[in-house]
Amino acid sequence: MIMNVYLKNILRFCIIVLLQVLILNKINLRWWSEPANFPLFIPYVYPLFILLLPFETPVWALLILGFILGITVDDFMNTAGMHACATVLIAYLRTNVLNALLPRNLSEYTNQQPSMKVMGLMPFLVYSAFLIIVHHLVFFTFELWSLSNIGTLLLKTVASAITSMIFIVVYMLLFTRQSVSRT
């Protein structure tokens, strides 16, 4: 039972957006409450949708999907354009990062999507961590809109990115189909 790749990605889009806006946006995390000026943050896992699109997705489709995803999340969070800007950027960078990390040309991976199984554990972690950090850095820069308190910016980026990575690894472990050799 192989689901149509389009249907699968549309479903994943809905699930990831709802997971982000209905659950993750509601849990405000804070690593320490003392010293009291550690900012509240939430993990952003929705870029995972862009990370998991099939290898042969053309760049223009990545960009447009990234923009749609970003605007959808912006719409829920009253942050006009900030998520869209960060997501379009990582959609553009995705192909280059994958090319740098994979031994073979991207066009040779047909009908496959980035995952721990296809890429190996470390390359996948490097790929997702790099793009997530870029995404968070851009997003929080736009959110704070000034470099005057760069400490808060870095603190928020690092804290949020690490938490997002934990959620992404958990998501990958939960939603990757295990070996299907058993009938």
């Binding site: 447009i64 006009a80 354009g81 900030m82 869209a84 800007c85 379009v88 736009f142």
Partner: peptide, 12 residues
């Protein structure tokens, strides 16, 4: 697309 997003941010 980036310019569109940045214009929207600047508006808000």
């Amino acid at each position: 697309l980036e310019i569109v997003s940045i214009v929207m941010i600047a508006h808000t």
